[in-house]
């Protein structure tokens, strides 16, 4: 099953807000290239996308995206330190195996890092867990037997990781159905967006 990112584009404007105009951007797991295309239009960025799925790769190519088919689990050896203004990992971190390693690599290559992920602490997920089933939702549309997700986390979990690895959180935004959530975000937020730099 392929990750379809087209359903959830409401996070694009927020990401664009955190990206300076004319930045050089690297999008890890760029899917069909929509986000990079959006940032090109809104922020006049240049950059590259990495995508391993052949169908999504071709969709990106057809949009004119500089798309590279390399495995990000192996790190980012093709990229020099600080060679990008922004490195983005949008709704992909939960399906990665070497999660910590890739975050470190992103902060090595980029001056700024944007990470977005479905919050596993969201109340709907919690209720399903209490009911004794693996959570399924708009953000997590998979069944346990076909999910690509191996490292789901909550907002609190991610905050802890940032603290222990000394990533500085410049901005954090939590969304549910396109609305910002500030009241108990780890309980009421479906999607988390982080803007990080190295401390």
């Amino acid at each position: 099953m392929k990750l379809n990112k087209n359903n959830h584009r409401y996070d694009f404007p927020i990401i664009a807000n955190w990206v300076n105009s004319n930045s050089k951007v690297l999008d890890l797991g760029c899917g069909d290239g929509e986000l990079l295309n959006y940032l090109k239009k809104e922020r006049n960025i240049t950059g590259y996308g990495i995508e391993k799925d052949p169908d999504n790769w071709l969709k990106s190519l057809k949009k004119g995206i500089n798309v590279l088919q390399v495995d990000i689990e192996a790190g980012l050896p093709e990229f020099e330190d600080n060679s990008f203004d922004v490195v983005i990992l949008s709704k992909t971190i939960q399906s990665m195996h070497n999660t910590e390693e890739i975050l470190n690599e992103m902060l090595r290559v980029g001056k700024q890092v944007i990470v977005t992920f479905p919050n596993f602490g969201y109340w709907r997920d919690r209720i399903q867990s209490i009911q004794g089933v693996m959570p399924k939702s708009k953000e997590l549309p998979y069944s346990w037997f076909n999910t690509p997700n191996v490292h789901l986390c909550t907002i609190k979990d991610f905050d802890d990781l940032c603290k222990s690895n000394q990533y500085e959180i410049v901005n954090r935004l939590v969304l549910t159905d396109n609305k910002s959530v500030s009241f108990f975000p780890n309980l009421f937020g479906a999607l988390a967006l982080y803007n990080l730099v190295n401390r």
Binding site: Y48, P54, Q69, V70, P77
Partner: peptide, 21 residues
């Protein structure tokens, strides 16, 4: 091929790279 890709990236050149199974 990735060596070529790397050297092109170092120069901010427009590039597409596919690894075909």
């Amino acid at each position: 091929s990735k060596e070529i890709v790397k050297a092109l990236l170092d120069n901010n050149i427009d590039i597409k790279y596919a690894e075909i199974t």
